[in-house]
Each structure stands twice: as structure tokens, then as C-alpha cells.
């Protein structure tokens, strides 16, 4: 993000925008807008002067400047706060001023660096919708960096998942969500269960305690001897072991319940297989910790990834914490 904005000089490679090489152009000559994680509003200026700063540098006349500032502030619903100092506003309002400041010059490219990460959960969701609406109304090309899966999926027209500076997958949000290219991307888009196994015959994955039937086996295995099976908690049903097995359950894994939390309607369950793998799933009924239970997973909801060595799951779990995604609504 800093490289695109021009705040850092690249040590290798080049940056292009519309066939113009940008990487040696100073930030002030790039005509971009940027929203910072910590807002970075000028504390000694009023809200209106903050928003009008870029316009005054572009020598926009006073009357037109006032009009455009007011329009931008109205767009973020802060029209009545123009005369206040940033310190008199709440965090959400400050971030909206920062957004207004970034878009008022109608820049070629808007950069948003985790703009919502300093807001509390409810405000974050409200602001997310507002950012989406603003983008729909103005159509400004925006690069949005976030660690938040829901933000990435809901805001992006095009999603780029990066890990340690390397692009992992690019595509529409649905595409990335439905068929992640590797375990890191899968971990980022919510495949929280990562189960190690060996590749068996006819598309089965042997995970020690059980063997899983997998619908999409093949293309991502690439003939590797080991595999990691990734499953969303939503697709794992956990039920007590002694409950009547109405029908023969597909891919049933015996587990022991460790934690069970009521989340309204269902219980979120964390359980462990005999081999020590943690399984996250949902249960219809309350399961006491220590209860023997069965986790069942539909064959088509499993994504498997080939591995040359065992224990790939640990990497997926570690990756979940560090992954960053950037969406490029084009």
C-alpha cells in the first residue's frame, strides 16, 4: 500500500497505472486519495479545512471548494459538522471525514488501508455498507486492504489474497470463497478445520480415526501422498455418539467434545479427535464437555490440498492468523 501511494520506494520491480510508470513519481504528484488506519486528520484544522486541503492545493477557487467540501461531507452524513475540530468527533465520524477528504478531489485511485479496523464491531459493519454505497455512487477505483474476511468478501469486486507479499489467489469474491487455491486462502475465507491425512484409493482421505470421502478430490492433489482436508465449521454437524443414527452418516469422525457455546439456535462446538486434531462444528443440542460425539461432514463441502509431507494443517492454522487480503473493486 505504501509502495502504491509512493510513501516507499520499491527496491525491485515497477508500478504502472494506465501505461505510465509510477514508482519514481513522488506521492504528491500521483493524484491519489488515501484513507489511513488511524485516520490521520490534521488536528489543527476544522473538518471542512481537512476535506478542502487537497482542493486548495489544486488551486480550486474558494466558492467551488466550499461547495465540493459540503457535497463530500453530506455524502458521508457529516454536513452539519464542518466547523468542528477532528478531536470533537467520534472515531466513526473521524473516519468518515478521512473518507470525504480522500474522495473530494476525485482522485484516479483511492487507497484504503484497513480503514475500519479501529472501529468497534457494530460501527464497522455500518461503515462497511457506507463504503460500499459510496463506491457504487462515485465509481472511484479503490484498493482496499483488510485482514477481515467479511470486509474483503463484501466490498470487493475483485479479491486478491496475499501472504508475505506474494499473491496467493485473484478472483471474484464468490470464486475465492467457493474454491480457494491453497490452504492459506482456504484458511482466510473461513475453512477453519484443517485435518491432516494420507491420500488413499478412490478419492478417500485416510485421517487416522476415519477415512473421508471427498467429492472434489483429484485436481488439487496432484498425486501428492499426503493431504490437508479443509472444511468450514458451518459444514460440520456434531451430534452425540449415542443419538439414533437415522441414516448412515457420511464421513463420520468420532470426537470428544471440549467446549460448547450457545450462539442462538445452535451450539458452536469445539471437539477433538482421538488423534488430537481439533474440529470446529455446530450442534443442534447441548453437548456437555467430555461427551463422546460424532462429527459428520458432507463429501462435497470438503476441499483437499495435496502435500508432500504430513502435518500441513498446522501451517494452515498459523496462516489463518496472519493472512491479509486486498480487494480491488474495479
Amino acid at each position: 500500500m505504501n509502495l502504491i501511494a509512493g510513501l516507499l520506494e520499491p527496491t525491485a520491480g515497477s508500478i504502472w497505472l494506465d501505461d505510465v510508470r509510477l514508482d519514481h513519481v513522488p506521492p504528491e504528484k500521483r493524484d491519489f486519495g488515501m484513507v489511513f488506519q488511524n485516520y490521520a486528520l490534521f488536528p489543527h484544522m476544522s473538518v471542512a479545512d481537512n476535506v478542502g486541503f487537497g482542493l486548495s492545493l489544486r488551486r480550486v477557487g474558494k466558492a467551488e471548494r466550499r461547495e465540493r467540501v459540503q457535497k463530500a461531507l453530506d455524502m458521508v452524513q457529516l454536513g452539519s459538522q464542518a466547523a468542528k475540530r477532528p478531536s470533537q468527533l467520534s472515531g466513526g465520524q473521524q473516519q468518515r471525514v478521512a473518507i470525504a477528504r480522500a474522495i473530494v478531489t476525485e482522485p484516479r485511485l483511492v487507497l484504503m488501508d484497513e480503514p475500519l479496523s479501529n472501529l468497534d464491531a457494530k460501527l464497522r459493519i455500518d461503515m462497511r455498507t457506507e463504503v460500499r454505497l459510496l463506491h457504487q455512487d462515485l465509481g472511484l477505483t479503490t484498493i482496499y486492504v483488510t485482514h477481515d474476511q467479511a470486509e474483503a468478501l463484501s466490498l470487493a469486486d475483485r479479491l486478491v489474497v496475499m501472504r508475505e507479499g506474494v499473491v496467493q489467489q485473484t478472483g471474484a469474491p464468490q470464486e475465492v470463497y467457493e474454491s480457494p487455491d491453497n490452504i492459506y486462502v482456504a484458511a482466510f475465507v473461513g475453512y477453519r478445520n484443517a485435518i491432516d491425512g494420507r491420500v488413499g484409493r478412490d478419492g478417500r482421505i485416510d485421517i487416522g480415526d476415519a477415512s473421508l470421502v471427498v467429492a472434489d478430490a483429484g485436481d488439487r492433489l496432484g498425486g501428492a501422498p499426503h493431504a490437508v482436508a479443509m472444511v468450514r465449521p458451518d459444514d460440520v454437524t456434531i451430534a452425540a455418539a449415542d443419538a439414533a443414527p437415522g441414516e448412515a452418516r457420511a464421513n463420520a469422525i468420532p470426537v470428544t467434545v471440549r467446549v460448547s457455546e450457545y450462539q442462538g439456535r445452535v451450539f458452536a462446538v469445539e471437539a477433538q479427535t482421538a488423534g488430537g486434531t481439533t474440529v470446529f462444528g455446530y450442534s443442534e443440542t447441548l453437548l456437555q464437555p467430555g461427551t463422546a460425539a460424532v462429527a459428520s461432514i458432507a463429501a462435497e463441502s470438503i476441499r483437499v490440498y495435496g502435500e508432500d509431507a504430513p502435518h500441513g494443517a498446522a501451517r494452515a492454522a498459523a496462516a489463518e492468523a496472519e493472512l491479509a487480503a486486498s480487494g480491488v473493486p474495479a
Binding site: A5, G6, L7, P26, P27, E28, K29, R30, D31, F32, G33, M34, F36, N38, A40, L41, F42, P43, H44, F53, G54, L57, R58, R101, T105, L111
Partner: peptide
Amino acid sequence: DPSLDRAASILGAGPTQRFWRIDLPL
């Protein structure tokens, strides 16, 4: 705050303008 300088430069302020309009007042 160093991010103020960065914000100002992205908004189009060169080093001189940043000094006079952001840093000096602060």
C-alpha cells in the same frame, strides 16, 4: 504524528507546503 505528513503528501502537498501548512502550525 508521521501519518499527517503522509496524508498531506498524498493529498498533493510537496515538502515545502507540508512544512508551512502542517508541521509549522503544529
